[in-house]
Design a protein around this nucleic acid. Sequence first.
DNA 1: TAGATTGTTAATCGATTAACAATC
DNA 2: TAGATTGTTAATCGATTAACAATC
Lengths: 217, 217
Amino acid sequence: MAQSKGRVKSQGIPVGVINRLPHYYRYLSSLMARDVERISSRELASKLGVTASQIRQDLSYFGCFGQPGYGYRVQELQAEIGKILGVNENMHMVLVGAGNLGMALMKYPNFRRRGFYIRAIFDSDINKIGQEVEGIEIKPVSELEKYLSRFNVDIGIIATPAGAAPEIASIFMNGGVKGIWNFAPVSLNPEEGVVIENVHISESLMTLSYKVKEKDK
Amino acid sequence: MAQSKGRVKSQGIPVGVINRLPHYYRYLSSLMARDVERISSRELASKLGVTASQIRQDLSYFGCFGQPGYGYRVQELQAEIGKILGVNENMHMVLVGAGNLGMALMKYPNFRRRGFYIRAIFDSDINKIGQEVEGIEIKPVSELEKYLSRFNVDIGIIATPAGAAPEIASIFMNGGVKGIWNFAPVSLNPEEGVVIENVHISESLMTLSYKVKEKDK
DNA sequence: TAGATTGTTAATCGATTAACAATC
DNA sequence: TAGATTGTTAATCGATTAACAATC
């Protein structure tokens, strides 16, 4: 208790911890919607399918958010985890690829609600250019570089086919984008100082396929 | 070497291994496309950003696919991993939710190419019902149950808003679906004998957001 | 043959769980 | 106060890496 000095190890936080925080965050948000005020690590753990120990251990990397004998105040813990994750900090994002997946991302209301704003859309399809989506006009991808030089973009989203992805990634990296959220089924080699987060949908399907086969045995 | 009897431990394969196999599979496929014939665990590792040891260890759970002194034949290894994962086994899938994300999944050509077929689409939007996508007519979600009782569905895909997801999941589970591929931002409690694979897109964004913030420090 | 690289066992490392003093 | 639950330290467990005999 009383993590006196406050851990300063900004690095060295296990990646598993970081992957679980958004999960905690989402469930706490749903508790807030149901006006639940307090929750213990034990309850939370049973709902999320992890151990209470793990939740307390995970949180302890960042501070002390609970009260012994009481548990955690839902609203407070949600806010603290949100702060750790960078929710509600007005992230400037741009989207390349105005296909179905890109449109799905544009229309997902939770991003905006949580401070993640897609402020520009680029596509190479001449028929799409000039169209408006959620109040944002689709620009030709040739203008991406200029846009990046003019604005301070936090996150670049790649929702293009695999072939186009490496070039877009390199434009993003040269343009000073801090993070790349990649939905194309390729591995992009991460340049110094840029974070790449992949969402490999087909790999996830293959993992599921394996597990389904296993169950059959 | 010479894993004489062939490991029978169908269970007990670490989840990390299963998550890496699709990654190996994809890269090997791309090597095949470039007519590369052989590769060593060391080369493969350096391309994929893992250790050679890990690749050999991972593969050893399933058999002996390489030749000492030579390495792996790309085509053979790709085929073996594909077999492990259940690629090209004619998986029967159904999609619930014909929004942008659902359409993106419908139009992704690699699924079909690898034996994953979406054979029916359901939606609750009266305006979408009857429309055809990739040769498949969108049915009302009220007919899902009947469909499941008639066909042997391997994988049910949930591409609906969060609110609808739990009910769809329960219809899937009662209908004998073996695996659920869930894109809705909710946790579904997995029933006995059904595998659930979540693709939590917004959690992935928050993870990226955290890492971007970290880099700034 | 000599060189290269596998499959596998053993050693290391890190992450998860258990336990408990502190305390609300 | 007594009961509950935290934050943290120590113990356990599992996954990754290193090393090497076998062998192509």
